[in-house]
Amino acid sequence: MAILTTLLNSCGGYPRLLTFPFDPGGRGLNSRSSELTPQVTSSYIVFVSDRNGSQDVYLFNAQKRQLIDLPGLNSLDEVASHPSISEDGRYIVFATSRQGKSNIYLYDRQTQQKRSLTENLQAEVRNPMINADGDRVVFEIAQDGQWDIMVYNRAGNPTD
């Protein structure tokens, strides 16, 4: 199901409707493919789509109304999900699944580097979110048969 419109709460606390045109070529926000789990900031919409045959993370500049290239972010052998972006658009955090193992990655758009925050954890992880400043990442972790919440700093270390 394509995203034809996205509802969000603005800073004023009221719903706002964002409308973007349909692009059958897949170069815009709305396409014939699935666009999943969008997260919206004042300038960006980050989402997952299968428009290129794999479930990848995409970034759309809502002001310029165009997709932004994310070199080094997506991998053919990973299934991406639940992206989140810092308010300034520099940092993107997202979950992946690869050969049955889940992981949380942080991508820095300035350096074009992707790195795992959770590769040393012996647990399932999911649903990451990054705060507006881009210095904290929160995600769910399954240890000892229950889901808990972890908070990491951008360096990949748990916070108190």
Rank of each mutant, 00 (worst) to 15 (best):
I3C: 13
L4Q: 13
T6W: 11
T6N: 15
L7V: 07
L7I: 10
L8C: 15
L8M: 15
L8A: 15
N9H: 13
N9S: 14
S10F: 04
S10T: 10
S10D: 15
Y14F: 10
Y14E: 15
L17Q: 11
L17N: 11
T19L: 14
T19W: 08
T19V: 12
P21Q: 08
F22E: 15
F22L: 14
P24E: 08
G25N: 11
G25A: 07
G26S: 03
G26N: 03
R27K: 13
G28T: 02
G28N: 02
L29C: 08
N30T: 14
N30I: 10
N30C: 15
N30H: 14
S31W: 03
S33F: 09
S34C: 13
T37P: 13
T37H: 13
P38W: 00
P38M: 04
Q39T: 09
T41I: 07
T41E: 11
I45V: 10
I45H: 10
F47W: 02
F47V: 01
D50A: 01
D50F: 00
D50P: 00
R51T: 07
N52D: 14
N52E: 14
G53I: 06
Q55Y: 10
Q55I: 09
D56P: 11
V57N: 09
L59C: 03
F60A: 11
A62E: 07
A62W: 01
Q63K: 12
R65L: 06
R65C: 04
R65N: 03
Q66G: 12
Q66P: 09
L67V: 00
L67F: 00
D69C: 13
L70C: 05
L70M: 08
P71L: 04
P71G: 06
L73H: 02
L73G: 03
N74Y: 00
N74P: 07
S75K: 12
S75V: 02
S75I: 00
L76H: 04
D77G: 05
D77M: 05
E78F: 06
E78M: 08
E78V: 05
V79R: 12
P83V: 01
P83E: 07
S84V: 02
I85F: 07
I85A: 12
D88G: 08
D88Q: 03
D88P: 05
Y91W: 10
I92A: 07
I92D: 08
I92W: 00
V93N: 05
A95H: 01
A95T: 00
T96A: 06
T96N: 09
T96Y: 01
T96Q: 10
S97F: 01
S97D: 06
R98H: 01
R98V: 01
Q99H: 07
Q99V: 02
Q99W: 06
G100I: 00
K101C: 08
S102L: 05
I104V: 06
Y105P: 10
Y105Q: 11
Y105M: 09
L106K: 01
Y107W: 02
D108T: 01
R109P: 05
Q113K: 15
Q113V: 14
K114E: 12
R115M: 12
L117I: 02
T118E: 01
E119P: 04
N120S: 09
N120G: 03
L121W: 00
L121F: 00
A123D: 00
E124D: 10
E124P: 07
E124M: 09
E124G: 02
E124V: 02
V125M: 04
V125G: 06
R126H: 02
N127F: 05
N127P: 13
N127E: 13
